[in-house]
Simulated scan of single mutants.
Amino acid sequence: MEMFHFRGTADVIIARQRGRDIAKAIGFGLVDQTIVAYIISELAVKLHSPLSGRGYMVIRTIAGCREESKLGIEVRLFDQFHGLSRVQVSSLEKLVDDMDVIRDRAHGTVMTFRKWLVSPLHID
């Protein structure tokens, strides 16, 4: 698990690259690596905006159920901005396998997305 706080543009670039590296390490192809990096970048830019309150992002690898051998990547955004949401969820949810958004007026927004590695079909 890696945590990123965004104080400048360089932090956004580091998080994007690290997300791509994690996706590559668990076996995602180039297209999915690019999708993961794009979504991380979009969310990180929202956290870095001048109107933003405090916030951070966590990137980690995840595994499916014990019966399944699937792996994936999870990115969780903790945005403590108390105004209207700055992230357009509808454009991002088409690119991921699973997305949750929880908004709380007292604590801000927690957005989680997951992208699962689809293993190739094996026919015996």
Rank of each mutant, 00 (worst) to 15 (best):
M3G: 01
R54A: 07
R54C: 05
K46G: 04
V89T: 05
Q88E: 05
Q80L: 01
I22C: 09
S49P: 01
D100T: 09
L71S: 10
E68H: 09
T112A: 06
R20A: 10
S69E: 14
S119P: 01
T34D: 14
G72D: 03
H5A: 11
V101L: 09
Q33W: 11
E93R: 08
C65M: 14
E93M: 04
L117D: 15
F81S: 04
S52E: 07
R16E: 11
L121C: 05
I123R: 03
F28R: 12
G29K: 10
K115I: 14
R76L: 11
S52N: 09
K115Q: 15
V12H: 05
M3T: 03
R60Q: 11
D124S: 10
V31P: 11
S52A: 11
L71E: 13
T34I: 13
E67Y: 14
D98K: 09
V89W: 03
K70D: 09
L84T: 10
A23F: 06
R54Q: 08
I59W: 00
E2T: 04
V110K: 07
R66P: 13
R114E: 15
A63D: 06
I26V: 15
M1E: 04
V31Q: 14
L117W: 15
L95H: 05
Y38K: 13
R7E: 09
I59F: 01
G29A: 15
H107C: 13
I102A: 05
L84Y: 10
D97S: 06
S41N: 14
D32Q: 14
G72W: 01
Q33T: 07
L47Q: 08
D11M: 05
I123W: 03
H48N: 15
D79Y: 00
A25W: 08
R66Q: 13
D11A: 06
L77W: 01
M57W: 08
V101W: 09
I40Q: 00
G29I: 08
K94I: 01
A23W: 04
D104M: 05
V96R: 02
R66D: 10
I14V: 12
A23D: 03
G19E: 00
L95G: 01
V96H: 01
G108I: 07
R16L: 03
R66Y: 10
R86K: 12
H5Y: 10
G64M: 07
S91H: 02
D104R: 08
V45Q: 13
Q17S: 13
A15L: 04
S85D: 00
G53C: 06
H5C: 07
P120M: 04
I14C: 03
I40L: 02
R18K: 12
K46N: 11
A10V: 03
K46C: 07
D104W: 03
I14K: 01
